[in-house]
Amino acid sequence: MLIRTHKDAENDAVEDDKWISRRYTLRSDGMGHSMHETYIKPGKELHMWYKNHKETVLCIEGEGKIQDLTEGGEWELKPGVLYALDKNQQHILSSKKGMTVICAFSPALVGPESHDEQGSYPLLDDDGTVMRR
């Protein structure tokens, strides 16, 4: 059994000027997915396109919105609202006052991944080398 605390996840956190991702589980945990708590900083807008991963996201605090750039549509996010990027959709995620979401990625992230210029995570091998951008 794995038990992780918020403090444990902070040790594997990745941050930039728009978000903080606290990574609770990673590929090395053998779960088949990774689980993250991500905080979208107030007033930020993120253009993302997870070409190499599927992602499921549950809003647990704050409010924001997601815009699907691939299939169209825009939805308000608030606690209890979930979205899943089942077709690697390009999207824009934003929050005016800050928002916390729980994210599951498949395949699992290794740990150090950060968004590239297209808003994507590279697919990393277990040792952190890039398998696919």
Results as ranks from 00 to 15, higher is better:
M1E: 03
R4E: 06
T5M: 03
T5Q: 05
K7T: 07
D8G: 07
N11G: 06
A13D: 02
D16L: 03
D16P: 01
D17I: 01
K18T: 00
I20S: 00
R22C: 08
R23K: 14
Y24H: 12
Y24V: 11
T25A: 09
T25G: 12
R27K: 15
S28T: 10
M31N: 08
H33F: 15
S34A: 10
E37W: 05
Y39V: 04
K41G: 00
K41D: 00
P42H: 10
P42K: 12
P42W: 12
L46G: 01
H47D: 11
M48D: 03
M48Y: 05
W49Y: 11
K51A: 12
N52M: 10
K54R: 13
E55A: 07
T56Q: 03
T56E: 08
L58G: 03
C59G: 06
E63T: 14
G64W: 02
K65N: 11
Q67L: 10
D68N: 15
D68K: 04
D68H: 06
D68T: 09
D68C: 08
D68Q: 04
T70P: 15
T70S: 15
G73F: 02
K78Q: 04
K78A: 10
V81H: 01
V81E: 02
L85D: 01
K87R: 15
Q90I: 09
I92C: 02
K96D: 13
G98S: 15
T100L: 11
T100V: 14
V101I: 13
V101P: 01
I102M: 10
A104D: 05
S106T: 14
P107E: 09
A108C: 13
P112Y: 11
E113G: 07
S114D: 07
D116M: 07
D116N: 15
G119N: 04
L124D: 08
D126S: 15
D127H: 14
D127W: 14
G128E: 13
G128N: 12
G128V: 11
G128T: 13
R133G: 05
